[in-house]
Amino acid sequence: MRRASRPAIGSHVFLIVLTAAFLAPVVWAVLSSLKEPATIITDPLGVDPGSFTLGNYRAMFEDVPIGSGFLNTAIVLVLKGGLTLFFAPLAGFAFAKYRFAGQNVIFGAVLLTLMLPTIVLVVPLLLQMRELGWVNTYQALVLPGAVDAFAIFWMRQVIAAVPDELLDAARVDGCGEFRIYVSIVLPVIRPGLAGLAVLTVMNIYNDFVWPVVVTSQESMQTLQVVLATLAQNITGNRIGADFATVWGELLAASSIALIPLLVVFVLLQRHFINGILAGSVKG
């Protein structure tokens, strides 16, 4: 926005190639999911809208419990996402605008959690769930990893940019600290929250290794787990299922799984991008 010169042709070429690369797999998958299974294999590059069919989708819905996968993911999204979106900025608020004994230690814990790979805790967490009797439950899917450390870290930066005067003015008016968070801080950081919302939804939607391990019952599996066992399910459930059919159903399921996030993104993309950019400009 600051540089005056017009971009050269090369810039456009670079961006167009990049854009094509970003879009190609998604477009290919969605188009192919509408083709006859046999042509996905014999002619992977051809597109003939005239022969499009929903057959792959119909077959996939019969073979795969994708509905319950969606439902479970939605439940986990609402619960875990809600926890993160409310409590992470709250903790970020504490770190940004207060000074309290033990602050450094607790913030160190946030950094530690940030660095800790999820995968290293999978085994002990699983054993812990077993002691708690939480295997195959929503609380097991929701609580570990809720109030995400990265979210706290990010919100701390965003909230630090909120003017202290605003908070002090509220205090003079007799506002309690929690009231200040709810009625001053949260509204002010809305753009950042929108960014956080998209990121959180993304992370939870894509969560894989933990749901795989902690849900053995099909009825509790999230969408990603259902997707991952899809090929196996399809080949198993239909005796002599051939390769092309499996691919067709796989593409149908993958395409369907793309839709919710793309919709969320398209609706919130302005906030999301601005939210990420926001922290920077205000620092």
Partner: peptide, 25 residues
Amino acid sequence: GFYRTVALVPFVTPLVAMAQIWIVV
């Protein structure tokens, strides 16, 4: 704006779905 939005499309696709598509592609 268009470029910027498209750049984020892969980021919002579900990883496992894309991994399956990778196998096919």
